[in-house]
Write a protein that binds this DNA or RNA. Sequence first.
DNA 1: CAGTGAGCGAGCTTCCGCTTGACTT
Length: 784
Amino acid sequence: MAKNLLIVESPAKAKTIEGYLGKDFLVKSSYGHIRDLVKTDDAIDTDDNFKQKYEVPSDKKALVSELKKLAKSAETVWLASDEDREGEAISWHLYETLGLKDDKTKRIVFHEITKPAILKAIESPRKIDFNLVNAQQARRVLDRLVGFELSPVLWKKVKPSLSAGRVQSVAVRLIVERERDINKFNAEAAFKVVAIFNTGNQKDRFKAELPNRFPTVEEASQFLNDCANAVFNIKSLETKPSKRSPSAPFTTSTLQQEASRKLGFSVARTMQVAQRLYEAGRITYMRTDSVNLSDTALQGAKSEIINAYGDKYHKLRQFRTKSAGAQEAHEAIRPTYFNDHTIEGDNSEKRLYELIWKRSIASQMTEAEFEKTTAKINISTRSEDLVASGEIMKFDGFLKVYFESSDDDNDDIDLDNSDNSILPPLSNGQNLNLETMNATERFSRPPARFTEASLVKKLEELGIGRPSTYAPTISTIQNRGYVVKEDRDGKERSFKVLTLTDGKISEVTKTEITGAERNKMFPTDIGVLVNDFLVQHFKGIVDYHFTAKVEKEFDEIAQGFKEWTHMLSNFYGPFHSEVQNTLDNADRATHERELGIDPVSGKPISVRVGRFGPLVQIGSADDEEKPAFASLRKGQMIETITLEEALELFKLPKKVGEFEDKEMTVAIGRFGPYIRHNSSFYSLPKGLDPLDVEQDQAIEIIKEKRQKDKDKVIKVFDENPDAKIENGRWGPFVRFGKQNLKIPKGTEVEKITYADVLKWAEEDPKAAGSKKAKTTKTTKAKKK
DNA sequence: CAGTGAGCGAGCTTCCGCTTGACTT
């Protein structure tokens, strides 16, 4: 039996450390927390100094008894959980639960998983820091009290099974308020002037812009008119050097943002893939708020950069964490071995690793150097100047490996697609030829909707949530139905373009699609309802700065300046009376809106949330004739739907005639408008209004879809016409009745036999059972 | 991808943060 038992939080870490220490050390993992508050309402006794009831969850029982046994036979137990609030609490829980003895227990911490760092840690053990533990208890208890008192208020006043919490409710609030800002926003139009000049040589074309915009078409037109007979020359030339520095290496949040922008990953996917890389030993720990690199990492990056790019590309950089509430128990996310530029693995692993490698390497590289030239162009007939600017890279520096993307997309209209960042050689006073000049009507843009990743960024800025909870929080608010992540179609908008060429001005009206969104976060009606209720009755909790405020107090507890139960009773007293007061006095939250009167029947029209979601109702329940109902569609909300839009909803589904003796119906479903015929669904082509569809057109669409489906079939098996090989979106696959089977890698499609199909169908994991285990629960709940 | 849309009200739901595997219908 080993003399020493060392316990860390993560099994992957345990494996690495075991290799560094001799056989005198047995290294085990606690797999995070080993116990938690009991799940019932009596977990905390608010009348007895917030005394807590803990339990070891059932899935941790076996682990705990194993650790207990090992601890008993060890001479010394080393508690090596992370050096932060939660880590300290894990050590304390281990100490209590495993029944450790004070003289046999040592607490150690290290920030990097290297042999010297761990040996050094072992040389300087300490005791458990109970100030830190108390800070964690305060955090844990506060979250439980808030969550388990607020949620039941929602069950009573809004709808059962809803939830509220210090983190999730603020996340929802951010999305709801952003949506309102967007709805409130009034786009202002103005004319932007862009000119294309040359220096007499057609090859040397370049772009110049007018710094200010014209609010009206008349002013823009006047400007172009003046320019028609003007002489243009260079008024001034200025060249300035500029530099750009690389960003810090990745934290959880910045990794999620970049993987979202560059690879299109959801935050959950990023974390899954990163976890696999971590377990394979390719990267350091992926849940971190630190931008710090260890000395070994700095050395590794340095030698790799000098090796691959040369001395002048290396620059030692130490980054400081700027995010609020960072605890920095780990390093930044970086490759474990910098000399591996790429790795083996699936596509997503390779791409994410490459992103991490590049960002880490770039963070230790020199600045990129530019020379920016700005030319002012005089217009003989006007007082304004046009401005042309160009940028030349003098030295690439870190840009050799990494280019960070940003959230802002550029909507400039480029008059030519060539690289307009370089200016031809110019000199002061030089005359220029105007090729063409445009005044284009541009609109100011509303605030951007959140993506998963930009929401994480915002939460991090506010100090809300932790690296380990960003992805789960994003999932929770979607699972509760407070927000949805989806695509929405934009609307058409027309804009004017004035063009001056060869001294003549022409005007055209063009159209563009505006407001189209992909993979963005939208609030739902229930999300709005819950948010407004919480803001009205619990302003303090859903305040954006609530977390920052209590974090400050947790820090004071951690430093021993404040008593944790004292802090909690200061909070809980007023909070609990707010809860009581709301339960006793607040009305049931409803979100009903009267839209007006139906012009056909003269009955009132209203919108509200029903049992199956938001709906429009014509007439009231008291009428003799039953009211008519229709569900709201994707993108429509109680808050913003208009009377006209509501009336539209009653025009569908609509019968459009018959085909093959069966009725055809047009309706709008989750995936857009469709024709339903003989229990099959046929999507309508984009841009076709479902109300306009007539019988002949519908038949055409059905026939076309059938032909397309036929064309997709590569082969039908003689043994069974329900088994076929088809061309799908991602290549060929086998359709076998209702099962869709993946063709194993390396299989030649022509050589697939029916026997293969039967075998694959047998092995298909989805075939065994895809039904949700929800049925048992609901039937149980139904019995009287 | 249908249409449905109350109600007498049993007994259920729920937090945040730390970490990975996992009963089988």
